[in-house]
Structure formats: structure tokens, C-alpha cells
């Protein structure tokens, strides 16, 4: 295990200086929208929170942390706080294969297509789309989270945003539950799958849906993606540990202990593989973590987009 204080200081400094947890300049992380035709005005702002975009960088970072955990080099991570965030962020980006960065954009493109197909009146402005700061909150840095959240919320309020579509559970929880408490700003926050109205088609397929903790337990919205899948003729396997009783993928521990994270995700992988159907995730952190354990995982958006 790494010293959590060192990790928190690095993350907090990155968020403070670059508005992102890894210090990677936003023009590198957030490029998916350049090939999409999305209006700049509408009823709902599509707010990705950059989580899907950050997934390949999380994977690279975790792979390197895993090599040094519990070795005599582990304590040296404390010196990382002296490296300028943009320099370390650009280095991390350079170590992350371009094809993985492009793969990570696919979910956002699929979600855009699904929302358009459903007739949702939404818009996207990359300058308003920021990381939510949720990792700082999860790590116990209230002040760092509050400062960043106020910056994000102020920008949204100044732009007149009232309704927000989110795409991942962490950002959804942050904006829906934490932002009103920490920033005083309240938005109408809806995960994208709640707005989907997809035409029925008999897919004749069964999948095993992994509920992320924030969607399944904290926000209790597990029935919605199941209903969307069901409308397309896609059945979902019953697991003992699903919906409000879902098991964690281990992702939240990956920055302080990749080994602990791996042991948790291997347990979850076994549970998800038991029914013998394709595994579907709806969180980039869960998907990335389960893939690291060798599981074949697809994002919910990809399954839906393929059957529309």
C-alpha cells in the first residue's frame, strides 16, 4: 500500500493546478466531440465529467503503481508532488497508447448516438465539461473537493445550465448529491439511460449487468438500464450480489493499493462470470478494472448502440 497522504497531495495538487486528477492537459483528454455533430444549445447539457476519457490514463497509472507497490521504491512516490502537474500529466499521456485513448471515446460517441435516436434535446460545450473532483471527495479531501466543485458549478451556473445529462456513476453522484451540499448549486441531473426511448427490437440475448456502487446502491437506479435493455429484447442474468446489493469492482482502491484492488476485482469477476453470459458495465472505472482482471467486458452504451 502507498501512503494515502502522498497520493492525496499529488491528486489535490493536480486538480488545483490543472482541473484534472492526473495533470493531463484537457486538450489531450477531451477530444471525442471533435468528430461529432452536437448542437451548442438545447435543454440538457451533456456533461461527461471526463471519466470515460480518463480511463486509459488510469489504466496506465495503475499498471505502473502496481509495479512499485510494497517495494522499497514505494515511499519515493512522495517526491512526485514536486513534479509540475502538466509535466507528469503529459508524461502519463505519452505512455498511454493512442488506440486506447480512441477506444475510450467510443462510449461517449455511442451515448451521443443513443440520445439522438431517442430524440433528446441536448447540447455539448467542451469548455463546460470538467472533471467533477469526486476522487478527492472519496479520498477524504473535503477542502480540495469543495474548491474544485465550486469552480465547476460556478461555470455551469454562469452559462445558465439547469439540466444535466451524466454518463458515469461517479460524476452523477457528485453533481446530484454532493454539489448541492458543497457548492450551494442544484442542477437537475439525469444519467443518460433514463432519457433513452429506444425502439423495440428482439435481440434474443442475455447479459450479466454489473451495477456500479453509485448507480446500484447510492442512487438506486439499477432498474432503469435493465428496462432499457429489456425493451430491446435483452435479458439480464440474476446475480446474488446485484442492484442495491452489488459487489464493488475494487476500483476505488487502485490509487493507494493496486494489489488490494486486484483481489477485490477478482472476486467480482468470478461472480459476474458465473451465469456464463457477456458482462456489461456502465462505469469506465468498473469496466477498466474488470478488464484488468482478464474479464471480457463491454460498456452498456456499446450493447445498446449495436441493437438499435
Amino acid at each position: 500500500m502507498f501512503n494515502p497522504t502522498d497520493i492525496i497531495d499529488i491528486l489535490a495538487n493536480n486538480v488545483k493546478k490543472t482541473r484534472g486528477p492526473f495533470g493531463i492537459p484537457k486538450f489531450i483528454t477531451n477530444r471525442w466531440w471533435k468528430t461529432e455533430e452536437i448542437p451548442e444549445k438545447g435543454e440538457y447539457l451533456l456533461f461527461t465529467g471526463l471519466m470515460y476519457q480518463l480511463a486509459p490514463f488510469i489504466e496506465t497509472s495503475t499498471r505502473h503503481l502496481e509495479r512499485f507497490e510494497d517495494t522499497r521504491w514505494a515511499d519515493e512516490i512522495r517526491f512526485a508532488r514536486f513534479v509540475p502537474p502538466r509535466l507528469s500529466g503529459t508524461g502519463l499521456a505519452a505512455m498511454t497508447p493512442i488506440f486506447k485513448q480512441k477506444q475510450a471515446q467510443k462510449a461517449l460517441k455511442d451515448i451521443t448516438r443513443l440520445l439522438k435516436t431517442s430524440g433528446t434535446d441536448f447540447f455539448y460545450r467542451p469548455q463546460l465539461d470538467e472533471y467533477s473532483g469526486i476522487l478527492l471527495y472519496d479520498m477524504g479531501d473535503r477542502q480540495g473537493f469543495a474548491d474544485h466543485a465550486r469552480y465547476v458549478a460556478e461555470n455551469l451556473t454562469k452559462a445558465g445550465v439547469k439540466k444535466i445529462i451524466t454518463v458515469d456513476p461517479h460524476t452523477t453522484y457528485a453533481l446530484k448529491v454532493l454539489y448541492p451540499e458543497y457548492t450551494g448549486e442544484t442542477f437537475e441531473v439525469i444519467p443518460y439511460f433514463e432519457l433513452l426511448a429506444l425502439e423495440s427490437k428482439t435481440a434474443d440475448l442475455e447479459v450479466t449487468l454489473h451495477d456500479p456502487c453509485f448507480f446500484g446502491r447510492y442512487l438506486e437506479v439499477s432498474d432503469v438500464p435493465r428496462a432499457v435493455l429489456s425493451n430491446l429484447g435483452i435479458r439480464t442474468s440474476n446475480l446474488r450480489n446485484d442492484q442495491v446489493f452489488t459487489s464493488c469492482c475494487g476500483g476505488p482502491a487502485e490509487s493507494v493499493s493496486p494489489a488490494l484492488s486486484r483481489s477485490i476485482m477478482e472476486e467480482r469477476k468470478k461472480e459476474l462470470e458465473t451465469p456464463g453470459h457477456p458482462i456489461v458495465a456502465m462505469c469506465p472505472v468498473c469496466a477498466g478494472n474488470l478488464k484488468r482482471s482478464g474479464a471480457q467486458v463491454e460498456d452498456l452504451s456499446a450493447v445498446l448502440a449495436r441493437h438499435v
Binding site: N3, P4, C213, V244, S247, G251, P252
Partner: peptide, 16 residues
Amino acid sequence: NANELWRCLHCGLCTH
């Protein structure tokens, strides 16, 4: 024993 706290995944199963 503070470092032990960061083993918690904040998954919420205990709270639930």
C-alpha cells in the same frame, strides 16, 4: 492506524 482507512472502497454495502 490511519492508513487502514484508505483500504475502504466506500462501496456503501455496510451502510446499506
